[in-house]
Amino acid sequence: MTILRSAGRRALTLVSVVVIAGGATVAMSAGAGPAMAARVTATCANDNGDAAVIQSVIDGSAVGDEIVIDGPCTIISTIKLLGNRAYRGDSPSTVLKEGDGRNLDAVLASDSWVDDHAWAGEPITLRDLTIDANAANNPTGGDAVVIRSWRSTIEALHIRNAKANGLRVTNTSRNGTTLTNTLVNGSIRALFVEGSGQRGIYVQDSGNAVTDWNLTDSWVADSGGDAIKLDNAAGWTIERNHVYGVGGTGINASRLFATSVSDNYVEDFDTHGIGVSVQGDAASTIVGNRVFQFSGAGTTYLAIRHVNYGTGHVSVTGNVVRGNGSGVGLSYQRGSNQLAVVSTGNAVTGVTTPLDKGTDVTMTAGF
């Protein structure tokens, strides 16, 4: 496909070119000033050629471009997202649906993951799309979206029917290569993830790479396992999320380190409502969450499971637990290390044991 651009991307007059090739409509413009980004549109035909059309437009784009996808689209191969670009649907209801019998590892994925680099991909913005991984017709399929690009923004996606995870942010590539640098400073917001076979949103980190992100204002429904799982929650802000119909733990956050888990609504879970482990250095907060059980089977609503090393410090304040007649409301356990908890203002009803404080856990009401 030939893509036409103004010379040097520094034209002083507006240039607009439309190239139609292989079923794709590619619209680009460059305005006054230096290095103006282009807007590139890939138009799908809702057939097996759509993945190639989208990938061709992405591969022909330049740093700073916005790729707009006009669907519906049938995806038969993983779409590789190049860094330093923005991706969005023509509208939030633009659907990218995995084709029957494709069993893809991912529908959309960062270039760093696809190409098995040892370093994180450059930033991307991904928004306003519906991604349907079509698990019913892909019984050995994988994830819907895999992100391995630092300082990225993932927002306003509707992700559904992934056989494995709806969204996975990972330090590991497709073939298992782990990052030698970091994958930090990203934002995930306003997602609706439903019907994932494993986890709705999964932060996978076998090292200490995927830290200091924000996960906010999202909904996760009907996941086979945990709704939200973080292998490494260091520096994360996890707030104002609503998870329900959870096959595992509602919010499962390991390695809290200067972490905030606040103002989330968890209902109907099969393990823990909120379950965390804690690092022994910086303190963390668990504040203002609502954890309710209407029809789930889980029996521990808010649990500090253990401290990984040293002395963990956590403030647990202003949470509301409402059970269905059994279980433990608040559980504070230290494991083989030490735990100091400020616990105050929590309302716990409808459980058998409001508080289970482990042996030698230090608990105060603070100041």
Results as ranks from 00 to 15, higher is better:
residue 188 I to W: 01
residue 207 G to C: 00
residue 157 L to R: 00
residue 188 I to P: 01
residue 156 A to V: 00
residue 157 L to W: 07
residue 168 R to I: 06
residue 187 S to T: 14
residue 221 A to M: 11
residue 199 R to W: 06
residue 204 Q to I: 00
residue 189 R to W: 01
residue 208 N to P: 00
residue 147 I to Q: 02
residue 221 A to I: 07
residue 149 S to R: 06
residue 155 E to Y: 05
residue 179 L to V: 06
residue 218 S to N: 07
residue 214 N to D: 15
residue 169 V to N: 01
residue 208 N to D: 12
residue 188 I to Q: 01
residue 172 T to F: 02
residue 175 N to H: 15
residue 182 T to S: 06
residue 151 R to M: 12
residue 169 V to T: 01
residue 157 L to Y: 07
residue 163 K to N: 13
residue 177 T to W: 15
residue 182 T to Y: 05
residue 193 V to W: 02
residue 185 N to Q: 08
residue 171 N to W: 05
residue 163 K to C: 01
residue 153 T to S: 13
residue 173 S to W: 14
residue 210 V to D: 11
residue 211 T to P: 07
residue 155 E to A: 12
residue 212 D to E: 14
residue 154 I to G: 01
residue 164 A to S: 12
residue 170 T to S: 13
residue 164 A to N: 12
residue 208 N to S: 10
residue 190 A to K: 11
residue 149 S to W: 09
residue 197 G to D: 09
residue 211 T to D: 15
residue 161 N to H: 10
residue 220 V to I: 15
residue 216 T to P: 07
residue 179 L to P: 01
residue 152 S to N: 07
residue 197 G to K: 09
residue 159 I to S: 04
residue 214 N to P: 01
residue 168 R to A: 03
residue 153 T to A: 09
residue 147 I to H: 02
residue 164 A to Y: 08
residue 206 S to K: 00
residue 178 T to A: 05
residue 217 D to K: 10
residue 205 D to C: 00
residue 215 L to A: 09
residue 220 V to G: 03
residue 173 S to C: 11
residue 201 I to W: 02
residue 220 V to W: 02
residue 210 V to Q: 10
residue 165 N to H: 14
residue 207 G to M: 02
residue 200 G to S: 07
residue 210 V to N: 10
residue 218 S to C: 09
residue 217 D to R: 11
residue 183 L to F: 06
residue 178 T to F: 04
residue 216 T to Q: 15
residue 153 T to R: 14
residue 198 Q to K: 09
residue 178 T to E: 07
residue 153 T to W: 05
residue 206 S to Y: 05
residue 161 N to E: 08
residue 219 W to Q: 14
residue 204 Q to M: 04
residue 218 S to G: 07
residue 156 A to Y: 08
residue 181 N to M: 03
residue 189 R to A: 09
residue 153 T to F: 06
residue 216 T to V: 14
residue 181 N to R: 06
residue 186 G to N: 07
residue 176 G to K: 10
residue 194 E to S: 13
residue 192 F to C: 01
residue 203 V to C: 08
residue 191 L to D: 04
residue 171 N to Q: 03
residue 184 V to T: 14
residue 198 Q to N: 10
residue 188 I to H: 00
residue 207 G to N: 07
residue 158 H to Y: 03
residue 162 A to Y: 03
residue 193 V to K: 02
residue 173 S to F: 12
residue 208 N to R: 06
residue 177 T to K: 15
residue 182 T to A: 06
residue 196 S to K: 07
residue 167 L to R: 01
residue 196 S to Q: 08
residue 163 K to V: 01
residue 169 V to I: 14
residue 182 T to E: 05
residue 208 N to E: 09
residue 181 N to W: 04
